[in-house]
């Protein structure tokens, strides 16, 4: 961008502020590009490309986001420090996402098992046949308090309970510890 207008030509020392000013043409151009990309992403979503779907739509979104960040938000012309700050936020967010994604599949089965054991009535899915039985419970709007009454009996030490009781691999190792604890109660 050769268009480097300094706002404020005449100035006493303190009354000047040098910034980059983006020309109107560029602004409107970016907007039009963004609209075109929106149309493309909507159209692209109509074709079933399987797993590629997410990738394509995220790629387009990222292109759009970069346009906004670099032009509308002036990051392209901004100080390196501000660039760095924004860059780091993305890196940290990405790292966070990767780790929890990586991990969530590992224990998914335990959670599923738990869900199947303890699902409250209102969530139980009602196929036509089961409907009469389950429906009254749903309709009477069972109060959350009702099924939590029993809960306070289990102390917060139960935090890791689902894990401890549903984790086959480490069972052998945790047993002595678990015994220890129940003993000391």
């Amino acid at each position: 961008m050769s268009d480097h207008v300094e706002s404020d030509a005449h100035a006493e020392n303190t009354q000047s502020c040098h910034v980059h000013i983006v020309p109107v043409k560029v602004l409107v151009g970016v907007f039009l590009a963004l609209v075109v990309l929106t149309v493309i992403t909507v159209e692209a979503a109509k074709y079933d490309t399987g797993a590629l779907d997410v990738i394509v739509s995220m790629a387009i979104a990222t292109v759009k986001a970069s346009l906004v960040v670099f032009i509308f938000m002036h990051l392209w012309y901004d100080k390196p420090l501000n660039k760095l700050a924004f860059f780091f936020s993305i890196v940290f967010a990405a790292f966070f996402l990767c780790m929890i994604l990586l991990d969530s599949h590992a224990y998914d089965n335990y959670v599923k098992g738990f869900t199947e054991d303890k699902t409250p009535e209102f969530l139980v899915k009602e196929p036509e046949a089961a409907a009469p039985a389950a429906a009254p419970a749903a309709a009477t709007d069972a109060k959350p308090a009702a099924d939590t009454k029993a809960a306070p009996a289990e102390k917060p030490a139960d935090e890791k309970k689902p894990a401890a009781s549903e984790k086959p691999e480490t069972d052998k190792k945790t047993t002595p510890e678990t015994i220890d604890k129940t003993d000391s109660k």
Binding site: A106, Y107, Y110
Partner: peptide, 8 residues
């Protein structure tokens, strides 16, 4: 001991 995957 929360059920986290071993690799992690």
């Amino acid at each position: 001991v929360s059920g986290q995957s071993k690799v992690v």
